[in-house]
Computed example of a mutant assay.
Amino acid sequence: MFCNAHDGLMLSLYLLLCFAFQVLADSPWIDYPADGTATMTHYTIPDGFVAACGCNGDSTKYPTAAMSQMAYGSSNAFGPACGKCFNLTLLNSYTGSPPFLPSVVKSIVIKVTDLCPLSEAGWCSGTKTKKNPSGQFINFDLAYPSRAIPDDFFPSNESYYGYKDFGVWNITYQTVDCLKHWAGGRTPAALGSVTNLGNESVCCPANPTGNLNDTCPSYSDHNRLPPDTMTSYARMLAIPSTLVIIFVVAHLFQLE
Protein backbone atom coordinates (compact mmCIF):
# COMPACT_ATOMS: atom_id res chain seq x y z
CA MET A 1 0.00 0.00 0.00
CA PHE A 2 2.83 2.39 0.88
CA CYS A 3 4.46 1.69 -2.47
CA ASN A 4 1.26 2.59 -4.28
CA ALA A 5 1.00 5.81 -2.28
CA HIS A 6 4.66 6.53 -3.00
CA ASP A 7 4.12 5.99 -6.74
CA GLY A 8 1.01 8.16 -6.66
CA LEU A 9 2.85 11.03 -5.00
CA MET A 10 5.72 10.77 -7.47
CA LEU A 11 3.26 10.84 -10.38
CA SER A 12 1.53 13.89 -8.91
CA LEU A 13 4.84 15.71 -8.53
CA TYR A 14 5.82 14.78 -12.07
CA LEU A 15 2.52 16.10 -13.46
CA LEU A 16 2.92 19.29 -11.40
CA LEU A 17 6.38 19.90 -12.85
CA CYS A 18 5.15 19.20 -16.38
CA PHE A 19 2.33 21.69 -15.88
CA ALA A 20 4.76 24.32 -14.59
CA PHE A 21 7.07 23.89 -17.58
CA GLN A 22 4.10 24.10 -19.96
CA VAL A 23 2.92 27.33 -18.33
CA LEU A 24 6.38 28.82 -18.81
CA ALA A 25 6.47 27.69 -22.43
CA ASP A 26 3.04 29.23 -23.11
CA SER A 27 3.86 32.53 -21.37
CA PRO A 28 3.57 35.56 -23.67
CA TRP A 29 6.27 37.47 -21.80
CA ILE A 30 9.75 37.93 -23.27
CA ASP A 31 12.41 35.85 -21.53
CA TYR A 32 15.31 38.22 -22.15
CA PRO A 33 18.99 37.61 -21.27
CA ALA A 34 20.70 39.46 -18.43
CA ASP A 35 22.74 41.50 -20.93
CA GLY A 36 21.82 42.49 -24.46
CA THR A 37 20.73 45.23 -26.84
CA ALA A 38 17.60 47.37 -26.83
CA THR A 39 16.27 50.79 -27.73
CA MET A 40 15.87 53.79 -25.45
CA THR A 41 13.27 56.54 -25.60
CA HIS A 42 12.36 59.04 -22.90
CA TYR A 43 9.22 60.36 -21.21
CA THR A 44 8.36 62.79 -18.44
CA ILE A 45 6.99 61.99 -14.98
CA PRO A 46 6.54 64.43 -12.08
CA ASP A 47 8.79 64.37 -9.01
CA GLY A 48 7.39 61.95 -6.46
CA PHE A 49 5.19 60.18 -9.00
CA VAL A 50 4.11 56.65 -8.08
CA ALA A 51 4.21 54.66 -11.32
CA ALA A 52 2.94 51.18 -12.24
CA CYS A 53 5.19 49.21 -9.86
CA GLY A 54 4.13 51.32 -6.89
CA CYS A 55 7.72 52.24 -5.99
CA ASN A 56 8.20 54.94 -3.36
CA GLY A 57 7.94 58.45 -4.76
CA ASP A 58 11.50 59.27 -3.70
CA SER A 59 12.71 56.85 -6.37
CA THR A 60 12.14 59.70 -8.85
CA LYS A 61 15.07 61.53 -7.25
CA TYR A 62 17.28 58.96 -8.98
CA PRO A 63 17.37 57.57 -12.54
CA THR A 64 14.33 55.43 -13.36
CA ALA A 65 12.73 54.04 -16.49
CA ALA A 66 9.71 52.23 -17.83
CA MET A 67 10.24 48.92 -19.61
CA SER A 68 8.33 47.70 -22.65
CA GLN A 69 5.30 45.70 -21.59
CA MET A 70 6.16 42.25 -22.92
CA ALA A 71 9.58 42.36 -21.22
CA TYR A 72 8.13 44.05 -18.12
CA GLY A 73 5.91 41.00 -17.68
CA SER A 74 2.46 42.47 -17.06
CA SER A 75 -0.10 44.57 -18.87
CA ASN A 76 -0.83 46.66 -15.78
CA ALA A 77 0.34 47.27 -12.21
CA PHE A 78 3.49 45.34 -11.30
CA GLY A 79 5.52 42.76 -13.19
CA PRO A 80 8.75 40.76 -12.76
CA ALA A 81 10.83 43.69 -14.07
CA CYS A 82 9.76 45.98 -11.22
CA GLY A 83 12.70 47.12 -9.13
CA LYS A 84 15.34 45.66 -11.45
CA CYS A 85 18.38 47.79 -12.25
CA PHE A 86 20.15 48.01 -15.59
CA ASN A 87 23.22 49.81 -16.82
CA LEU A 88 22.18 51.39 -20.14
CA THR A 89 24.86 52.50 -22.61
CA LEU A 90 24.18 54.65 -25.66
CA LEU A 91 25.41 53.25 -28.99
CA ASN A 92 24.00 55.46 -31.74
CA SER A 93 20.85 57.38 -32.60
CA TYR A 94 18.12 55.55 -34.48
CA THR A 95 16.79 58.75 -35.98
CA GLY A 96 18.96 61.12 -37.98
CA SER A 97 20.65 60.49 -41.28
CA PRO A 98 23.36 59.42 -41.10
CA PRO A 99 22.97 57.88 -37.61
CA PHE A 100 24.76 59.94 -34.97
CA LEU A 101 27.72 58.17 -33.36
CA PRO A 102 28.69 59.95 -30.12
CA SER A 103 32.38 60.51 -29.53
CA VAL A 104 31.94 59.95 -25.78
CA VAL A 105 30.38 56.78 -24.34
CA LYS A 106 27.44 57.64 -22.07
CA SER A 107 25.97 55.15 -19.59
CA ILE A 108 23.39 55.37 -16.82
CA VAL A 109 22.11 52.91 -14.22
CA ILE A 110 18.32 52.95 -13.93
CA LYS A 111 15.73 51.23 -11.78
CA VAL A 112 12.56 49.97 -13.50
CA THR A 113 9.52 51.56 -11.83
CA ASP A 114 7.00 51.72 -14.67
CA LEU A 115 5.73 49.90 -17.75
CA CYS A 116 5.62 51.15 -21.32
CA PRO A 117 2.31 49.86 -22.74
CA LEU A 118 2.30 47.52 -25.71
CA SER A 119 1.51 49.29 -28.97
CA GLU A 120 0.92 48.14 -32.52
CA ALA A 121 3.98 49.71 -34.09
CA GLY A 122 5.67 51.95 -31.50
CA TRP A 123 8.92 51.53 -29.64
CA CYS A 124 7.30 49.33 -26.99
CA SER A 125 5.72 47.03 -29.58
CA GLY A 126 8.24 44.19 -29.19
CA THR A 127 6.87 40.73 -28.40
CA LYS A 128 8.35 37.23 -28.26
CA THR A 129 7.92 36.98 -32.04
CA LYS A 130 8.04 40.60 -33.23
CA LYS A 131 10.71 43.29 -32.93
CA ASN A 132 10.18 47.04 -32.66
CA PRO A 133 11.03 49.39 -35.58
CA SER A 134 14.73 49.34 -34.67
CA GLY A 135 14.87 45.55 -34.70
CA GLN A 136 14.88 45.15 -30.91
CA PHE A 137 12.58 43.20 -28.61
CA ILE A 138 13.03 45.54 -25.62
CA ASN A 139 12.67 49.27 -25.09
CA PHE A 140 13.62 51.30 -22.02
CA ASP A 141 11.68 54.56 -21.64
CA LEU A 142 13.93 56.78 -19.54
CA ALA A 143 12.31 59.27 -17.13
CA TYR A 144 13.92 62.39 -18.61
CA PRO A 145 14.27 65.34 -18.21
CA SER A 146 14.90 64.65 -14.55
CA ARG A 147 16.90 66.28 -11.78
CA ALA A 148 18.55 62.88 -11.39
CA ILE A 149 20.10 63.01 -14.87
CA PRO A 150 22.37 65.73 -16.30
CA ASP A 151 20.69 67.89 -18.94
CA ASP A 152 23.44 67.01 -21.41
CA PHE A 153 23.21 63.24 -20.91
CA PHE A 154 22.09 62.67 -24.50
CA PRO A 155 24.84 63.71 -26.95
CA SER A 156 23.82 65.84 -29.91
CA ASN A 157 25.11 67.75 -32.92
CA GLU A 158 22.59 70.52 -33.45
CA SER A 159 24.73 72.37 -35.99
CA TYR A 160 24.69 69.33 -38.31
CA TYR A 161 21.24 67.82 -37.75
CA GLY A 162 19.31 70.99 -36.89
CA TYR A 163 17.96 69.62 -33.59
CA LYS A 164 19.28 68.34 -30.27
CA ASP A 165 16.95 65.50 -29.29
CA PHE A 166 17.18 62.37 -31.45
CA GLY A 167 14.37 60.78 -29.44
CA VAL A 168 15.38 57.15 -29.97
CA TRP A 169 18.73 55.48 -29.31
CA ASN A 170 20.13 52.03 -29.86
CA ILE A 171 21.70 50.87 -26.60
CA THR A 172 23.18 47.97 -24.72
CA TYR A 173 21.82 46.94 -21.33
CA GLN A 174 23.44 45.07 -18.48
CA THR A 175 21.62 43.77 -15.40
CA VAL A 176 23.28 45.10 -12.25
CA ASP A 177 22.93 44.96 -8.48
CA CYS A 178 20.70 47.86 -7.41
CA LEU A 179 22.19 48.30 -3.95
CA LYS A 180 25.71 48.52 -5.37
CA HIS A 181 25.22 50.40 -8.63
CA TRP A 182 21.98 52.42 -8.64
CA ALA A 183 22.38 55.98 -7.32
CA GLY A 184 19.42 55.48 -4.96
CA GLY A 185 20.55 52.07 -3.76
CA ARG A 186 21.74 53.38 -0.40
CA THR A 187 18.74 55.62 0.23
CA PRO A 188 16.03 53.73 2.16
CA ALA A 189 13.31 56.24 1.21
CA ALA A 190 13.91 55.50 -2.49
CA LEU A 191 13.57 51.74 -2.08
CA GLY A 192 10.55 49.51 -1.64
CA SER A 193 6.95 50.38 -2.41
CA VAL A 194 4.32 52.74 -1.05
CA THR A 195 2.26 51.60 1.92
CA ASN A 196 -1.06 53.27 1.16
CA LEU A 197 -2.15 51.23 -1.87
CA GLY A 198 -2.13 47.72 -0.38
CA ASN A 199 0.35 44.92 -0.98
CA GLU A 200 -1.94 43.35 -3.58
CA SER A 201 -1.47 46.27 -5.99
CA VAL A 202 2.19 47.29 -5.54
CA CYS A 203 5.51 45.49 -5.77
CA CYS A 204 8.91 47.17 -5.92
CA PRO A 205 11.76 45.08 -4.48
CA ALA A 206 14.93 46.86 -3.42
CA ASN A 207 17.16 44.45 -5.32
CA PRO A 208 15.34 41.65 -7.17
CA THR A 209 17.45 38.66 -8.17
CA GLY A 210 14.89 36.48 -9.94
CA ASN A 211 14.12 34.35 -6.87
CA LEU A 212 10.50 33.93 -5.81
CA ASN A 213 11.12 35.61 -2.45
CA ASP A 214 12.45 38.89 -3.87
CA THR A 215 10.98 39.25 -7.36
CA CYS A 216 7.51 40.41 -8.35
CA PRO A 217 5.09 38.08 -10.10
CA SER A 218 2.99 39.18 -13.07
CA TYR A 219 -0.06 41.08 -11.90
CA SER A 220 -1.77 40.10 -15.14
CA ASP A 221 -1.22 36.40 -14.62
CA HIS A 222 -2.66 36.40 -11.09
CA ASN A 223 -0.60 33.31 -10.36
CA ARG A 224 0.50 34.21 -6.85
CA LEU A 225 0.68 37.06 -4.34
CA PRO A 226 3.52 39.56 -4.77
CA PRO A 227 6.36 39.68 -2.27
CA ASP A 228 5.81 42.23 0.48
CA THR A 229 7.94 45.23 -0.42
CA MET A 230 6.06 47.82 1.62
CA THR A 231 9.17 48.75 3.60
CA SER A 232 12.31 50.74 2.93
CA TYR A 233 14.13 47.52 2.12
CA ALA A 234 12.21 44.57 0.72
CA ARG A 235 11.67 41.95 3.41
CA MET A 236 12.48 38.32 2.79
CA LEU A 237 9.36 36.18 2.52
CA ALA A 238 8.71 32.72 3.81
CA ILE A 239 9.10 29.93 1.26
CA PRO A 240 5.82 29.52 -0.69
CA SER A 241 3.58 26.79 0.69
CA THR A 242 3.72 24.72 -2.50
CA LEU A 243 7.49 24.50 -2.22
CA VAL A 244 7.21 23.55 1.44
CA ILE A 245 4.94 20.64 0.49
CA ILE A 246 7.40 19.45 -2.15
CA PHE A 247 10.33 19.66 0.29
CA VAL A 248 8.40 17.74 2.96
CA VAL A 249 7.35 15.02 0.54
CA ALA A 250 10.92 14.70 -0.76
CA HIS A 251 12.18 14.40 2.83
CA LEU A 252 9.67 11.65 3.56
CA PHE A 253 10.88 9.73 0.53
CA GLN A 254 14.44 9.96 1.83
CA LEU A 255 13.32 8.48 5.14
CA GLU A 256 11.72 5.51 3.40
Rank of each mutant, 00 (worst) to 15 (best):
I110C: 02
G83V: 10
T129R: 01
D141F: 15
G126R: 06
Y94A: 01
T39S: 09
N92P: 14
E120L: 10
T37Q: 14
D35R: 00
S93K: 11
A51C: 10
G36E: 00
A25K: 15
S119A: 02
T129L: 13
C55K: 04
A143H: 14
Q136D: 15
P117F: 01
K128L: 14
V112K: 00
T127P: 14
C53K: 00
K130V: 15
P63F: 08
L142A: 01
Y43M: 11
T44G: 07
D114I: 11
E120N: 06
S146L: 08
N87C: 08
Y62V: 03
Q69T: 13
W123S: 01
T113E: 14
M70L: 14
F78N: 03
Y72Q: 05
C116G: 11
N92C: 03
N132H: 07
T127A: 12
L90M: 06
V112R: 00
V23S: 02
A51H: 10
E120P: 10
T37V: 15
S93D: 06
A121F: 09
P46K: 10
P28I: 13
R147M: 12
V23Q: 07
T60M: 07
L90W: 11
S97E: 00
G122C: 09
G73S: 06
L101Y: 09
Y72I: 05
P98I: 10
S74I: 08
V109E: 03
V112W: 01
S27A: 11
L115A: 05
L90H: 07
L91P: 04
T64I: 15
A71Y: 09
V109K: 06
